[in-house]
Simulated scan of single mutants.
Amino acid sequence: MIFLIFWLIGIITTIMNPTIRTVQAISTNLLFYQLVITLTLTGVQGFLGHVFKSDMVAEYIGWEKGSPFQKELGYAELGYGIAGVLCIWMGREFWLAVIVIISPLFIGAAIVHLKEMMKNKNFKTGNSTILLPDLIIPLSLISLYFISVF
């Protein structure tokens, strides 16, 4: 559930800026903070867990321990965490590229976790509760990007 906390931090940061008044400005600001705060924190947290505490994370999710794929996922998460920080200095085209890169990762992960629940009856906390952020984060980024553009 830490992912949802990161997502909410991005929203709260926007709400704390009372000078933004138009829908486009609000959505652009929300998008910025979701990219910079939510993706950065999510990426770093995912990296630390999947790389340095792989077996503990595997047990929490209900998956087999010792898979090197967790470390690969961890490094991918570090990559999008770094991309989140770079959104501070990069323009909207970069923001869109980051959204395009992370959305299939998050939505694909949600599908994998859902299949794991249906096929293997894996309802462990780490497998089931991650569905919400795996869907909310990319869908909110996509929505905010389109609202901010039009």
Rank of each mutant, 00 (worst) to 15 (best):
F3C: 01
L4W: 10
W7L: 14
L8P: 00
I11A: 12
I11T: 12
I11E: 10
I12D: 05
I12P: 05
T13P: 00
I15F: 13
M16G: 00
N17H: 14
N17C: 03
N17S: 11
P18R: 15
T19P: 00
I20D: 04
T22K: 13
Q24Y: 08
A25L: 10
I26G: 01
T28C: 00
N29I: 00
L30N: 11
L31M: 13
F32A: 01
Y33R: 01
Q34G: 04
Q34S: 09
L35Y: 06
L35W: 07
I37D: 08
T38P: 04
L39Y: 07
T40E: 07
L41Y: 03
G43F: 03
V44S: 03
G46M: 02
G46C: 01
G46I: 01
F47W: 14
L48M: 11
L48K: 05
L48T: 07
V51M: 06
F52C: 02
K53I: 00
S54E: 08
M56W: 10
Y60R: 09
I61P: 00
G62A: 10
G62S: 10
G62M: 10
W63F: 12
E64I: 08
G66T: 04
F69I: 09
G74S: 09
G74T: 07
G74P: 06
A76H: 06
G79V: 03
Y80A: 01
Y80I: 08
G81V: 08
I82Y: 06
I82V: 15
A83E: 03
A83N: 02
A83T: 02
A83C: 14
G84P: 05
V85H: 06
W89Y: 14
M90T: 06
G91M: 08
R92L: 08
R92Q: 12
E93Y: 07
F94A: 05
F94K: 09
W95Y: 13
W95R: 04
L96E: 04
L96Q: 09
V100C: 13
V100I: 15
I101D: 00
I102G: 01
I102M: 11
P104Q: 13
A109G: 15
A109C: 03
A110P: 07
V112H: 11
H113W: 09
L114Y: 14
K115N: 13
E116S: 15
M117R: 11
M118F: 11
K119W: 02
K121A: 13
K124S: 13
T125F: 13
T125W: 11
S128Y: 12
T129K: 12
T129W: 12
I130H: 07
L132I: 15
P133W: 03
I136C: 07
I136Y: 02
I136T: 13
S140H: 04
S140P: 01
L144P: 06
Y145H: 05
Y145E: 04
F146W: 15
I147E: 01
S148P: 02
F150Q: 12
